[in-house]
Design a protein around this nucleic acid. Structure first.
Lengths: 202, 202
DNA sequence: GTCTATACTTTGATAGAC
DNA sequence: GTCTATCAAAGTATAGAC
């Protein structure tokens, strides 16, 4: 079946992608529940009923946004783990990659951060807890290997350390301003710096 | 006017406090919008209409929850700043205090974290951005004084450092489990440890 | 691909009896 | 302090014309 004849409902017409981006923006800034299908339609300059020509439901929209981002991130993580030569490099690369994602998928990250908990209650989003778990495993492995090899302090609780890192990195999406003074790169560098060496002078 | 004759609508009967706690729990775990007045009433074993004997609206409920917590935290911060003898002590005390609040006001913290952005759009919650600002000023002052006096590294962006700390500390509310293995104290200690000295061995 | 029109459901809130 | 009864508004979604 050619892309031309494929029904828009199934996937990618340009208009469809446009609508999805608009919806994502709104879900990210206002929240999923606070965004009505009329809000999305208004922002797109059409009427709410017209959205249903492209998507089955509001849930279907957010579902698609999340899947795309999560697949991307998962692949990127796997590649880093595979290629990194030592735990410290792996860790800093994971952090850099996460910050880079802030520029590529800001809406999806905000939605994942803010709504995963709520969405997980619906069957359709059964995959969410699994993905979060997989992410945790990836980071934990790096941290633990680093402890074994002696680059990371052994007295730290790896799970706790992972959570601290994750919280700091992802929550950045709530205040990061792409047109502000701080670049993603400088934020990432500074965080890696603090995380590795601490804020106290020696 | 005695407490006995004071209308429940105005403030503190026992039942009222109970209902507020139930609502707070739901707001915190499910989200403000996802929690209906019927959910709250169900959880309390009454009908939704009965809630309006105690509170003017759903918004009034969350408003009261937030104000109580924020006042508390503000006072605590002021006291720490006043009493701490040096920036490093002040910083660790601020962090410890924030973690301690996680035990005392878990629901309010989660709500503040998750819903402040949404709520700020309503006049009633005009005070929220101001409070966040005040918190930031308090922490910034400590960090900057520490940089001046040489305890904290001068090459760090204080504002950025504050955000890293704030995000890590407050976001803990999303995964902290009071009946889990990790105590609040051990989480706080470990975080202070990482923040000050980093995760890399030397 | 969008519009018109509209059905259906959920939700926050009110009035008055008990 | 709670219940019964009920509203009005807002929300998601559908059907069929254009």
């Amino acid at each position: 079946m050619s892309a031309r004849n494929r029904p828009a409902r199934e996937n990618g017409s340009e208009r469809r992608a446009e609508l999805l981006a608009i919806a994502g923006e709104l879900f990210a800034t206002r929240g999923f529940l606070a965004t009505t299908v009329r809000d999305i339609a208004d922002a797109a300059g059409i009427l709410s009923g017209s959205l249903y020509h492209h998507f089955d439901s509001k849930e279907a929209m957010v579902d698609e946004i999340l899947r795309e981002f999560l697949d991307d991130q998962r692949q990127a993580n796997a590649k880093i783990i595979e290629e990194a030569e030592d735990p410290r490099t792996a860790l800093t690369e994971l952090i850099k990659r996460s910050y880079a994602a802030l520029r590529q998928h800001p809406a999806a990250i905000a939605i994942f951060q803010n709504e995963a908990n709520y969405l997980a209650q619906f069957e359709r989003f059964d995959y969410l807890p699994g993905v979060a778990d997989e992410f945790e495993k990836t980071w934990l492995k790096v941290l633990q290997e680093g402890q074994k090899s002696g680059v990371f302090r052994e007295d730290l609780n790896a799970k706790l350390t992972y959570r601290f890192i994750r919280d700091t990195v992802w929550t950045t999406v709530h205040w990061f301003n792409p047109s502000g003074k701080l670049s993603i790169k400088s934020i990432a560098d500074q965080y890696i710096n603090i995380l590795c060496d601490g804020i106290v002078t020696r």
